Simulated assay, not measured.
Amino acid sequence: MKGPLFYSKILLFGEYGIIKDSKGLSIPYNFYNGALKTDINPSEAAIKSNESLKRFVTYLEAINPELVTFDIEALKSDVEAGMYFDSSIPQGYGVGSSGALVAAIYYNYAHNKITVLENLTREKLLTLKSIFSEMESFFHGKSSGLDPLNSYLSIPILINSKDNIEATGIPSQKVDGIGAVFLLDSGIIGETAPMVSIFMENMKQEGFRNMLKNQFIKHTDACVDDFLKGDIKSLFKNTKQLSKVVLNNFKPMIPVQFHELWKKGIETNDYYLKLCGSGGGGYILGFTEDINKAKQALKDYKLEVVYNF
């Protein structure tokens, strides 16, 4: 194995909004991880990952050298020797599978890399973010660079705006708290690129732009503030509003069979659902004031609790 494990991430708030300067809050999720490896008898998955790495190396060779340079020779020879990314992070689930891979490649092969042990000034964070954005664009067509940043640093990141990000602390969990953030498995693999292009297409309409600014971003920003302050009452009020706005305006990003379930949560207050990443499948993020009620209401689905209030 080469280098440490890199973990998945969850963007609690900010999906789509951060493209247009909303706040965002991203946390590492240590349940899933990945690392670069070489095996004598590679599995089918390892061979597939290695093929993808070969294409990625070609892409990295063409990245602007003023932004970042790599030890391409070492990378090429390791990939030729069968190196692959061994990962438990589900792909297309909105928890940063490509982000962890990008972080691992940067950690092992970048020249003059910024390390986690340095004093991480805003300048350094933004530099890392732009390097990662460029690297991860290979997978999605357009990337904010936040997923790899989160995976690389393994600390919560607060996005105040595009040019203002900082490492942050989040309120510690109440182990016995019944309020919870959870992941709901949609059972469908989501594709980021098509979802982002639907969003960009919608952005051409004035009505959609106004909704984004006056409703979506307003509630997203409020949720981030509430979460960091630990104001749970206000957090659930704003999450409910956010869930409504997403259901009314981001329908293509919500798998059809979840539209009713989404609505039911808002009507009963048993849980509120929101997008996890770009949507279209993968995980859906849920917030509940009573995890037992949510589990009962969603008993036909697989839930994973990621944070307790």
Rank of each mutant, 00 (worst) to 15 (best):
A180H: 02
V181E: 01
V68T: 11
G277V: 06
T121N: 05
P194Q: 03
G3L: 04
L126S: 01
R55P: 03
I47C: 01
I40W: 07
Y271S: 00
L158M: 09
R209W: 03
L261C: 09
Y106A: 05
I131M: 10
F31K: 13
S161F: 02
V306G: 00
G280S: 09
G179Y: 09
P28V: 03
V224G: 00
D86E: 11
N33M: 09
T288I: 01
P4Q: 14
M195A: 12
N150Q: 03
I72D: 06
L275I: 13
F13Q: 05
E201W: 05
L67V: 15
D226H: 12
N249I: 10
A193L: 11
F31Q: 11
A297T: 07
T220Q: 03
Y32N: 07
Y32A: 06
S26Q: 13
F309R: 03
A193M: 11
Y84A: 02
I291Q: 04
K162D: 12
K129M: 11
G179P: 12
A167P: 14
L303A: 04
G24C: 05
N41V: 10
S77Q: 15
L146S: 03
K229R: 14
N64A: 02
M1V: 10
L120N: 09
S143D: 08
G282W: 07
V79I: 11
E134K: 13
Y84Q: 02
F199D: 07
F6C: 01
W262S: 02
S172V: 15
Y106R: 03
I72H: 02
Y271H: 02
L67D: 11
K264Q: 15
V102P: 07
L36N: 03
D86K: 11
Y32D: 04
N30Y: 12
N308I: 01
L117R: 11
L60D: 00
T115K: 08
D78I: 03
F85Y: 07
T58I: 10
I198P: 04
L75G: 03
E44P: 00
L275N: 04
N164I: 04
A104Y: 09
G282P: 09
I188M: 10
I165P: 04
A110P: 12
L146I: 15
D176N: 15
